[in-house]
Design a protein around this nucleic acid. Sequence first.
DNA 1: GTGAAAGCGCTAACAA
DNA 2: TTGTTAGCGCTTTCAC
Lengths: 352, 352
Amino acid sequence: MSSDSISSDRGKSTRGAPTIRDVARLAGVSIGTVSKAMNNSGSLRKETRERVVEVAAALGFRPNDLAQSLHRGQSFTVGLISNDSFGRFTMPIVEGLEAVLAARRIAVFMCNATDDAELERQHVEQLMGKRVDGLVFTARRADRRPHIDLGVAGVPTVYVFAQSDDPNALALVPDDEGGSRLATEHLISLGRKRLAHITGPEHFEAVRLRRDGYRRALTDAGLPVIDRFYKPGDWSEAYGRQAVADLFSDDGEKPDGLVCGNDQIARGAADALHDLEIDVPGEVSIVGFDNWEVIAGAARPPLTSIDLNLRELGAEAGRSLIRMIDGEKLGGVHRLPCSLVLRASSDPNTKN
Amino acid sequence: MSSDSISSDRGKSTRGAPTIRDVARLAGVSIGTVSKAMNNSGSLRKETRERVVEVAAALGFRPNDLAQSLHRGQSFTVGLISNDSFGRFTMPIVEGLEAVLAARRIAVFMCNATDDAELERQHVEQLMGKRVDGLVFTARRADRRPHIDLGVAGVPTVYVFAQSDDPNALALVPDDEGGSRLATEHLISLGRKRLAHITGPEHFEAVRLRRDGYRRALTDAGLPVIDRFYKPGDWSEAYGRQAVADLFSDDGEKPDGLVCGNDQIARGAADALHDLEIDVPGEVSIVGFDNWEVIAGAARPPLTSIDLNLRELGAEAGRSLIRMIDGEKLGGVHRLPCSLVLRASSDPNTKN
DNA sequence: GTGAAAGCGCTAACAA
DNA sequence: TTGTTAGCGCTTTCAC
């Protein structure tokens, strides 16, 4: 190729973005020099470095990460596969995860594979093709799920709000039992003694754990565990209303506190009590679970609730993944603490 | 390098994943042959092709998309930048988008940049570095936003549930006016004649558009537009309750139908009417907006609502982006239709 | 302090 | 039909 084409054949690269060659040419230096200048590596005359950087800026040059990754054997990307349709639980998790990873210049591929194993396989396949440095799995329910075969290459993997069959896998979930205990102890500390637990279907591990937390807190406080006061059902407001109807209509002793399995149930319960003209929190205290602002905040009265700290869960997943990418071996099921968020529905001494 | 090292030095590549060379070696063919076999291109003896594919499978070989992209000048990735904290509106959009793109083997980078221009710039920068083939911007409010400078390389960009300053940009938003009209006409068709509109703050373009739709529907039907019946405020249940209190407490004529700006307002309104012992939908019909199942479905009665068809909006964004990536020029603001979802709160002739 | 060149894993054009 | 090779854009060693 003769020299007369030098100035004309620029930018035949990816979508016309300027390449390191263009910069080198314009700055009148070699490719290697540009690389050093851009990465602040090697030793260069200050003058040269500055000139190169200037030309690069003028040209709008951005190093091609694809080429960089190819060379380094690290893509600075991770894949996230959700089985929650990017739903309300996944969202804050992703937010926390993304924030932590972005700080390390790692980008996140989002894939939705709601309840479709074949689709999930395709996504994993594709992500492996893109040579992601790590993988995150999220699910709608924090129950165990079949282990995912990643083929030969063992990519660092973390399960968030999900668990794997593989006992060596790292799984991060909220401490449901602890959270439920927190809720129960809160009501006990307010002087409540007859606590009912209205919650979701028992096939959820979370339901069983929360029930255990509730019972343990009662036992620890020397309060009786009354069978009739444990009411699993489903996660809806309608069920919350129905359960209250059940609990407060028969002849037996009535509860003076409700530990609810989620905020929807709690809100339904509050509405039902309102219809029965039973004062909340004056006569009955309520604690919800999930701290879903749009439900808990809008309820009458607004609901004290247990926060799953999902954002922190996601952030922790990001930190763990980074450590694994850096070579550390991590594993086991980790239960991260929940916290109590006070609103008006629990404390009878507070003005509404 | 002597031949005795041939069998030993395998897999020094990215995280030890097998490369096309490993496959070639094991199958006893050339690299080019493997490439042809994997891509079903060129002409190969059936036998050879099969053997290669088999060896590749046995080795767990996945072509390195990074290398492929580098060569092709196409990364098969797009970036999504959200200003809604991956919130409730972004979610379904992303779902639709991702589904469409995944079918074309395009992966989506998710970036959150909620109300942080600097962070957004960083994300764009990073995505450009990764040579994304396209860019999608989503926002919390469908109002105009400053144009984003993508530097030299003009990457195909679409704004979803968001709009740009740049009049040439492609923006996809729900047809707020049409949706509101749909809601209003629905109530009119049920025989309602005194329709109020309770809605969010007027600085939202959506609020103004929905107001226009409401008014136009009234005018078109020959019904009066009553100033007192237009009540902008905020998006909460609390405001819905308050607005109903206002509308139904004074001496003037009372509405017999409420077109609400969102489901939360509608739900608050329904609750307030319940407290006033005004029957919904017997005496007053209500239509919500957004069709947020968790609100609309749980309200008493469940709310008829306008669906923004966000999933379809996202899907359309995906299709448009693909067309732009394929070279088509697209632009302008497109308003996609909303639809009416019937529940119990609107039709007085329906049993609850 | 700077340039030249090998190679990351792949594709495609060309040779054999 | 199969093999060879020149890149894609970058980093990094090694000469100069």
